[in-house]
């Protein structure tokens, strides 16, 4: 762990001497895509820059099994800071019903009773440029409104657990900080820390440290690769897991 922290500090120190990243590609900040720009990835959603400082995001492939949409609205942008809010809606009922099955792909028992679930995510994002890096502070809450007969278990897998916790427990507040900047030429790093507060049933936190490097070949193509370390209080006790992340991004 100490080694990982040293690597992150080293990269931050190095990158402090170079320019801030290009804003063409979307990121975890309060910035939004330029109006008319679109980008998507193999695993990432389709994002579209709209007028009036808005950014729309939907996952077109997953949309048919988990209808979803989010809007990021930038409310304030000046030399000192940018402030945005993020509003996301997902309807995971169909996906959960698909995953409640016997045999391979059965994430939940086939006997699960899945209610109608409407999940809302609202977050505030504040970005500040300092030392040629962009620091973003976020604060948000997942809220799930469920209707109908309900008898299904949580999904305790590291990264999935905090993101789906609200489906079993109504709400999940979270907060995070993100640091991003240019590493060298068209290589951009992004480090993000997120903490989810799991308020019900054996309250505790799940934290995530993610680090990725993006090679922005052009405004039309980029490769993202990195890792995410999830640690915190799970139903089986404190635990952690390190997972790779990877995506091919396309902009147009």
């Amino acid at each position: 762990m100490k080694f990982k922290i040293l690597i992150i500090i080293g990269i931050l120190s190095f990158s402090a001497s170079v320019n801030a990243q290009s804003l063409k590609w979307s990121d975890n900040t309060a910035d939004i895509l330029e109006q008319g720009r679109k980008e998507t990835g193999i695993f990432s959603p389709l994002k579209i820059g709209l007028k009036n400082s808005k950014e729309l995001s939907i996952h077109p492939i997953l949309f048919f099994i988990i209808p979803n949409a989010s809007i990021k609205k930038q409310w304030k942008a000046n030399d000192k800071y940018r402030f945005s809010s993020l509003h996301k809606f997902t309807y995971p009922t169909m996906l959960y019903k698909m995953l409640s099955r016997k045999g391979t792909g059965g994430v939940l028992p086939s006997t699960s009773k899945i209610p109608q679930m409407f999940k809302f995510n609202n977050a505030a994002l504040l970005s500040i440029d300092k030392f040629n890096q962009t620091f973003t502070f976020s604060l948000g809450v997942d809220l799930s409104l469920n209707f109908g007969e309900s008898d299904f278990t949580y999904i305790e897998w590291h990264m999935v657990y905090p993101r789906t916790y609200a489906l079993n427990n109504i709400f999940t507040p979270y907060a995070g900080v993100d640091v991003t900047g240019k590493l060298y030429k068209n290589f951009v790093y992004d480090y993000k820390f997120n903490a989810y507060y799991l308020a019900r049933t054996d309250a505790g936190f799940v934290t995530e440290n993610s680090f990725k490097i993006t090679w922005q070949k052009s405004d039309k193509f980029a490769i993202k690769a990195g890792a995410i370390y999830s640690y915190g209080k799970f139903p089986f006790g404190n635990d952690g897991g390190l997972y790779p992340t990877f995506d091919l991004m396309f902009g147009f």
Binding site: L183, K185, F187, I213, W215, I223, A225, G241, Y243, P244
Partner: peptide, 27 residues
């Protein structure tokens, strides 16, 4: 400059290799 770019490219490849070769479910 070219050397540095190659170095970062190598880092990216290592990360991708890591992504495709590990044991994500610890089984």
């Amino acid at each position: 400059m070219l050397k540095m770019s190659k170095y970062l490219g190598m880092v990216l490849i290592v990360v991708i290799l890591f992504a495709t070769s590990c044991d994500p479910f610890n089984s």
